[in-house]
């Protein structure tokens, strides 16, 4: 707890008012009353707002608290996972996202159900999405709690309740459209504030040469390769493969106007990410020279805001981190609650009206937001590694069914179901038995799930022509 100036409270309250205002304004009247509006914003979002929303949803507490913590701990080499993530976007832009937009579904399990002509596959996809996204939210809540506790001295539990309550209110009221427009504002805050803070931080720390000399002496690996190229390849693969099939990103693709909008939005999203990548990499490493020892690297970003930079800049940084958390939580809650209310409920009660589904949706928005809080009270790892676990799960169980399934018409129902289950279980088991061969769990997860997908598809009954018709021109 620091003696912080009143500026922090004014800026924080101002930010909450602006974000709530956007949410309530976009959700005014009857605009978010049906599923088409609530889940995919009426498919009306353009490339710039859409790109910012893609970036804001991806850049979460994992980036500002987690990645910065890892940079603090390990130095500069970790920044090279970003090119891997951008390659993932490229894969998505070439083979996945535009096709998803063209298909005009409401949710990702909708696509799975139709592509594999199987209610079981749709149900499994919905359940696995709900589980993986709950893990993701745990990471967000822990980071929000750390931030508010470090800067304001608010107990962890209350801090996360405040953050989540505000997010749920605007998500609830305005649905995907409110989520996308507030994401846009939040992306501007994230990129702008951190970019502005970096020069101040470098000057405070005594300039680049001094920093480099100091941390090299502290530990030569900080300016060299703390992580080997093999490690970095693993991280890049986690982020790259999962980025291409991440359900909350794919759901955002449905909100865009056309396949070309999708491709442009991905480009604008990468621009936002590049600005943030540079800022986080620099500030994490520079913080190491100012604070050589901390209990956990996750505290580095909060300390930066509270003690290093002038109060106004610090307050804006706190808001930027909260923006990162809230934009991700709102996108994730819409997708994970729709997995239950739209997909599972729709399977259990096929003749449910849209109104009934919407009512279920709002109830599950609350439930999906509250469940991770129980786990966040006692976190099981550093924030970045919680996020990496959920990315690994998504990459392993979803990559074949979504990315390969959109491009290979030989895939069958049994292949999709088998690959989802094998991918999910491989990641969990590989992690539990302590990563044999020194491999990160995502690599066997993705490899096994692709092999199973191919082999099972080869030996099982092909899909009827009608099921493939929406996806392939020449069946």
């Amino acid at each position: 707890m620091f003696n912080i100036s009143d500026t922090f409270y004014y800026v924080l309250i101002g930010y909450f008012v602006i974000i709530l205002g956007i949410g309530l304004w976009t959700g005014r009247g009857d605009k978010s009353k049906n599923s088409e509006e609530f889940l995919v914003a009426g498919r009306s979002i353009g490339a710039v707002v859409g790109g910012a929303a893609l970036a804001a949803t991806q850049m979460s507490a994992g980036t500002f608290v987690g990645s910065m913590g890892v940079h603090w701990m390990t130095g500069v080499s970790y920044q090279w996972f970003w090119p891997g993530l951008w390659l993932g976007w490229l894969v998505s832009a070439l083979w996945v996202a535009p096709k998803m937009q063209k298909f005009r579904a409401l949710t990702v399990p909708d696509y799975i159900g139709q592509r594999y002509n199987s209610k079981l596959a749709k149900g499994i996809a919905a359940v696995l999405i709900f589980v993986a996204l709950t893990v993701s939210l745990i990471g967000q809540y822990v980071a929000g709690g750390i931030l508010l506790q470090t800067v304001f001295g608010i107990p962890m539990l209350y801090g996360s309740i405040i953050t989540i309550a505000i997010t749920i209110i605007y998500t609830f009221k305005g649905g995907m459209k409110a989520s996308a427009y507030s994401d846009f504002v939040q992306a501007l805050i994230m990129a702008g504030c951190f970019f502005a803070a970096v020069p101040i931080l470098v000057i405070q720390a005594g300039g680049m040469e001094h920093i480099a000399a100091f941390i090299t002496e502290l530990d030569p690996r900080l300016t060299g390769f703390y992580y080997s190229v093999k490690d970095l390849f693993g991280f890049a693969m986690v982020f790259g493969v999962s980025m291409a099939v991440m359900p909350y990103e794919l759901a955002k693709m449905y909100t865009l106007k056309s396949p070309r909008t999708v491709r442009l939005a991905i480009g604008f999203g990468m621009v936002f990410q590049a600005i943030v990548a540079l800022s986080v990499s620099l500030s994490g490493t520079v913080m190491r020279s100012l604070f050589p020892t901390l209990n956990t690297g996750d505290a580095a970003s909060s300390l930066l805001a509270a003690t290093v930079v002038p109060p106004l800049v610090g307050a804006l940084l706190v808001v930027a981190i909260l923006a990162a958390i809230m934009s991700t939580v709102s996108g994730v809650i819409i997708v994970s609650s729709s997995a239950i209310s739209h997909d599972i409920y729709g399977l259990l009660k096929p003749n449910a009206t849209d109104k009934e589904k919407m009512r279920m949706n709002k109830i599950w928005c609350l439930i999906a937001g509250v469940i991770p809080m129980f786990f966040a009270i006692r976190p099981f790892d550093m924030v970045q590694f919680i996020i990496i676990l959920q990315s690994s799960l998504i990459a392993a169980f979803f990559f074949p069914a979504v990315a390969i399934g959109l491009n290979w018409k030989g895939a069958t129902k049994a292949g999709a179901i088998a690959s989802m289950i094998v991918g999910f279980c491989t990641v969990i088991i590989w992690r539990e038995i302590g990563n044999p061969l020194g491999l990160h769990e995502v690599i066997p997860g993705v490899v096994f799930s692709c092999i199973v997908y191919y082999v099972v598809s080869k030996f099982t009954k092909p899909l009827p022509r009608e099921a493939l018709l929406p996806f392939f021109k020449d069946v």
């Binding site: 090279w80 951008w86 480099a212 396949p259 070309r260 491709r263 442009l264 990548a277």
Partner: peptide
């Protein structure tokens, strides 16, 4: 003690995305 990589990769990507038309 990334910028150039990002400018080349993302710049190239945006040019491609801008000139690619929908079928």
């Amino acid at each position: 003690l990334l910028v150039i990589y990002a400018i080349v990769f993302i710049g190239g990507y945006l040019i491609w995305a801008y000139y690619t038309k929908d079928e």
